[in-house]
Structures are given as C-alpha cells and as structure tokens.
Amino acid sequence: MILDIYKDALEYSAKDWKTLVILGVMCFFSLLLLPIFLVTGYNYRVIENAVHGIINGRDPLPGFEDLIDMFVDGIKVVIVQIAYLLVPCIVFIVCVILGSQLPGFAASAMIVIGCLITFVLVVVACLMSQMGLCHMAYNEGAFSKAFAIGEIKEVIDDIGWFECIATYLGLIIITVVISTVVTSIIYAIFAVFGISGALLGADVMGGIFALGILINTAISMFIVGPYLSIFNARSIGLLYTMQI
C-alpha cells in the first residue's frame, strides 16, 4: 500500500507543469515572506483533495482561485507546524541547559541524550503535525481538529505507527534522492561542456560553472521543489485515508 501511495503521488505531482512553475514563482517571491503562505496554502489544498480521494484516483491538481482563502489556510498550516515542533525545541533547550551545568563527560552525555530524544520527538511531532493537517482538512478545515491529539492518535493507531513512520521517512529519502539525482545530472552535463571547451582551448570553465549553478537553481526552484512539495502533501493525505 505504501508503494501505491508513492506511485500515485509521483504521477499526480507531474500532472500539470504550469502549476509547478506558478508554485515556483511563489517560492521565489517567498523571500518577501508573505508568498510562502500561498505555497503552504496550496499544499494544504493538495492534502484536502487527497483525504477526500482514493489512491490511483483521477483527482486533478487544485487551482489557484480564492487566493485569500489559500493565504489564510497557509497561515494555519504554518501555525500548526510550529506548534507541534515547540515540544522538541523545548526539550532540546532544557537538555542543553542541564548539560551546561554538568562537568566534562556528563555534560557531553546529557547533550547527546538530548539530541537523540529531540530527534525522536521531531519525527513524532512532524508526523503528528502532518496528520493533524489531514485531520483538519478531512473535517472541513476546522482549525481545532489539527490539535485534537486523541483523535489524531486514533487515526495513526488505525493506520499503524510503523506504517506511518516508515512512509514519512520514505518521503524524506525519496525527496533527497530526487533532488540529488537532478542536481548531479545537471552539474554532470555542464562539467562535460566545461571539459570539452577546455580541451578545445576555450577559457570557458568559469562561465559554464556559473551558468550551471544558475540553471540548477532555477530548475530546483521552479520545477523540482514544487514537484516534491506536492508529492509530499499528496502522500501524507493518501496515508490518512488508510484508516481501517
């Protein structure tokens, strides 16, 4: 079932390249801060489609109408994500403070233990926040449902904690692999151009290297990044539908 989710999400994310470019433009202007909420709001719409859909269905990509509603949804998403990450952050800070009060080896041990605990809590918090967003989307956008811990835990229990964590970690691995492969291919192409130019006696290595960085950045921002964000949102939404 997990592989079916990945397959569906990979295909779904590539349905409309114009959507990816529009999202990429939003990501570019997110340096101004406000457009980032449109990006997170769009991803929330992808989740909405997924939690009310089925694996390997014919769900279309969401549109960009009602930008104000999308912006508000994006703010909600960011608030939910920050709220769930507060606990791991607090635990890490407490461990660092306690470690600073201890001598030598004990201080190092406390910080290492704190890092391990924080890592586990971050994984759980990220999973809870994503499933919380799915729960909110499933319940017609009711903001309080994103923090209905008992209900969200029941959803995860029904799906299975192992399946949820395995799916989430798989998303991270797939995201890293796709990003790395695309970047490597682009740099390899420009490396070949640069070496060919050098063999022909042209002093173009610097220019080709700079052009490679520029093109790689553009493709990552306007194509790969949006594609992966939709892929992750769709996958989490479909995971939510796996409740018994």
Results as ranks from 00 to 15, higher is better:
149 I>K: 02
43 N>A: 15
39 V>T: 05
59 D>E: 12
43 N>I: 08
135 H>Q: 09
172 I>Y: 05
98 L>V: 15
25 V>M: 13
46 V>L: 09
115 C>M: 15
140 E>G: 09
91 V>C: 09
102 L>H: 02
195 I>N: 00
225 G>E: 05
32 L>S: 13
167 T>P: 03
78 V>N: 09
136 M>G: 10
112 V>E: 11
100 S>I: 06
133 L>K: 00
6 Y>D: 06
175 T>V: 09
37 F>V: 10
2 I>D: 04
127 L>D: 03
145 K>L: 13
71 F>M: 14
1 M>H: 04
13 S>A: 15
78 V>D: 09
124 V>C: 00
162 F>K: 11
221 M>K: 04
215 I>W: 04
97 I>G: 13
99 G>C: 03
60 P>L: 07
99 G>R: 05
162 F>S: 08
68 I>Y: 11
9 A>R: 06
96 V>C: 03
177 V>K: 02
227 Y>F: 15
43 N>F: 05
43 N>R: 05
64 F>V: 13
3 L>M: 14
6 Y>N: 09
175 T>G: 13
27 C>G: 08
53 G>L: 13
114 G>C: 10
238 L>N: 03
29 F>C: 12
111 I>E: 05
189 I>T: 11
232 N>I: 13
160 G>A: 05
14 A>Q: 00
219 I>Q: 08
51 V>I: 12
108 S>H: 10
12 Y>E: 04
213 I>W: 14
73 D>R: 00
155 V>Q: 01
150 G>N: 08
108 S>Y: 11
15 K>L: 14
168 Y>A: 02
50 A>L: 04
89 C>F: 13
154 E>N: 12
114 G>V: 06
164 C>K: 02
167 T>N: 03
175 T>Q: 01
138 Y>K: 02
221 M>P: 02
6 Y>T: 07
40 T>W: 12
220 S>A: 14
39 V>I: 14
70 M>L: 09
90 I>W: 03
244 I>L: 09
164 C>Q: 04
127 L>P: 06
165 I>D: 01
228 L>Y: 00
91 V>M: 08
63 G>W: 12
137 A>S: 11
112 V>L: 15
206 G>R: 00
243 Q>G: 01
60 P>I: 07
179 S>R: 03
237 G>W: 08
207 G>A: 15
12 Y>L: 08
81 Q>R: 10
91 V>R: 02
60 P>A: 10
164 C>H: 04
119 F>Q: 04
198 A>N: 12
203 D>Q: 04
6 Y>G: 07
65 E>M: 03
13 S>Q: 03
53 G>F: 06
4 D>A: 14
103 P>W: 08
184 S>H: 07
118 T>F: 10
175 T>L: 10
43 N>D: 11
110 M>Y: 08
113 I>S: 14
177 V>L: 09
230 I>H: 01
107 A>K: 02
224 V>G: 02
167 T>A: 05
214 L>T: 15
123 V>P: 08
137 A>P: 01
69 D>V: 11
146 A>K: 02
71 F>C: 11
136 M>V: 09
138 Y>G: 02
184 S>P: 05
53 G>Q: 10
229 S>P: 00
58 R>S: 06
48 E>D: 06
